[in-house]
């Protein structure tokens, strides 16, 4: 089970729904950007109304939150536009209060939204994985490719959180106006992005404007790429991102995966052979 290919989806055209799960306090609305049909893990855009209050508590899922607009006080500190949290499952966050309301992207990575009132973190909570930073201010833009082959100049990323085991990564990306890159790409990982501002177009899907979103499973062609006015987006991947570049728009995901395996075979033939011989299934 997984998430379907949602691309493109412009959420600004849809109304918020009342967030009425009884373990959460009232006063929030949501839109589902995408949801895993097996686990209920989901990516949400949420609106927290003026006067929103939530007691200290934790979730049984890893969660991420990126503040789009407005401010919220969590514990003793006030966080605003561009603030990013990675909250490992079981980490208790302080009481929340938003005087004037705020909008955020909220991700539950392991299951549906859960909330348990608690002043203390769960004893198994992975405290060292907690991230709290202002995504706009507290990290550098990387103009160089993270791994070759890389994207053309005029496209830049900044990493906000990296899982050291899976290489899952949350990051901002931005493109300058008139950015263009003439190739088609696919990856071994699923990729997801929400356009905070601006436009970026791909030959397959047309223009992704402000409020545009995609969840794209692995091995699906995307590109060539162009941006008229530039863009900035929050993006996530669930594994290491390698750019398989090519220029055949008509290949399908199976053919792309075969090409990826052929490349792996050329790069690490002994590892693949060992895996095959030992029927390794980790």
């Amino acid at each position: 089970m997984a998430r379907p290919h949602i691309e493109p989806y412009v959420e600004l055209n849809d109304a918020y729904q009342t967030f009425d799960l009884s373990s959460f306090p009232k006063g929030a609305n949501y839109k589902v950007l995408s949801m895993d049909s097996g686990t209920g893990a989901c990516s949400l855009k949420m609106e927290f109304q003026a006067g929103y209050n939530r007691k200290p508590g934790m979730s049984f899922s890893d969660a991420e939150m990126f503040i789009l607009e407005g401010q919220v006080k969590i514990g003793k500190r006030v966080y605003g536009r561009g603030h990013y949290f990675f909250i490992p499952a079981g980490i208790a966050m302080g009481a929340m209060h938003s005087e004037n309301g705020f909008e955020a992207l909220v991700f539950y990575n392991d299951g549906p939204p859960t909330f348990v009132e608690s002043d203390e973190s769960h004893p198994l909570a992975l405290r060292e994985a907690f991230v709290s930073m202002n995504a706009y201010m507290d990290a550098p833009w990387l103009s160089a490719a993270r791994r070759n082959p890389g994207v053309a100049s005029g496209f830049t990323v900044k990493s906000l959180r990296l899982d050291p085991v899976t290489k899952a990564n949350t990051f901002l990306y931005a493109a300058v106006p008139t950015f263009m890159q003439d190739n088609i790409s696919y990856h071994d990982c699923a990729e997801e992005a929400y356009h905070i501002y601006g436009d970026c177009s791909m030959m397959q899907f047309g223009e992704l404007p402000t409020g545009g979103y995609f969840w794209r499973p692995a091995y699906i062609n995307h590109g060539c790429f162009w941006s008229k006015h530039g863009c900035i987006a929050l993006a996530r991947i669930d594994g290491e991102l390698y750019n398989y570049f090519h220029y055949n728009p008509w290949t399908n995901p199976d053919e792309n995966a075969h090409r990826a395996v052929a490349m792996l075979h050329r790069e690490k033939p002994q590892l693949l052979e060992w895996t095959r011989k030992h029927q390794h299934n980790h």
């Binding site: 799960l21 499952a89 392991d110 549906p112 859960t114 769960h122 909570a125």
Partner: peptide
Amino acid sequence: VQDQAPLRSDEESDWISKNLAQQ
């Protein structure tokens, strides 16, 4: 921590089903 989550409630299952249908 995830492995110690309580079983999914009927309310949560309904919420997931409703949102999957919309998706």
